[in-house]
Amino acid sequence: MQTLEQIKDRIAAALPGARLAVIANASPAGQPSLLLDHEHALEAARFLRDAPELRFDYASNATGVDWPERTVKERVKVKKMIDGVEKETEELAERKIPGCLEAVYHLYSMELGHGPLIIRLRTGNRTDRVTLPSLTPVWRSCEFQEREIFDLFGIVFEGHPDLRRILMWDGFEDHPMRKDYAPAASGEAKA
């Protein structure tokens, strides 16, 4: 299989204007992934599936990730005047990373026997801009898994043929896999 950078360059060449980013993975698995933008995600997915040297014809898994808003502390180099002399010092600075919801797809090629390729899509935020393009038109196997993401994370997939809840009942309003979900206390009377 080609490296992720090579795949990224191929997509960029095939789809001019597509905003792509390689997301590093610092964990022992070390599997980097490819972040796609909303406008070109469907086309990029078709390209990954159909390009003769890639042929990612099998989406084995689609899942969601909830990223709440978080602050990270970083050491930043700052220039300061100390006793009339400009010196460079290190300071701790806090940086806010806005929250978002993410859909992650694991792709394999049955025909060429390579994979996985991991692609990601991110929503604008966690509240009102939670729409992503559905990849079910490209990989039919995403249908139930995107419904599950819709059910448990609340990502709305545009272009999905049958977007309903799949695990919880229809009248249910929460999204239980979000980090800030607090289950209703149904057993309190018993305990």
Binding site: L167, M168, D174, P176, Y181, P183, S186, G187, A189, K190, A191
Partner: peptide, 11 residues
């Protein structure tokens, strides 16, 4: 403590 399981059928 999950979101989807009844804490006892004797409810």
């Amino acid at each position: 403590d999950g979101y989807n399981v009844l804490p006892g059928i004797d409810l």
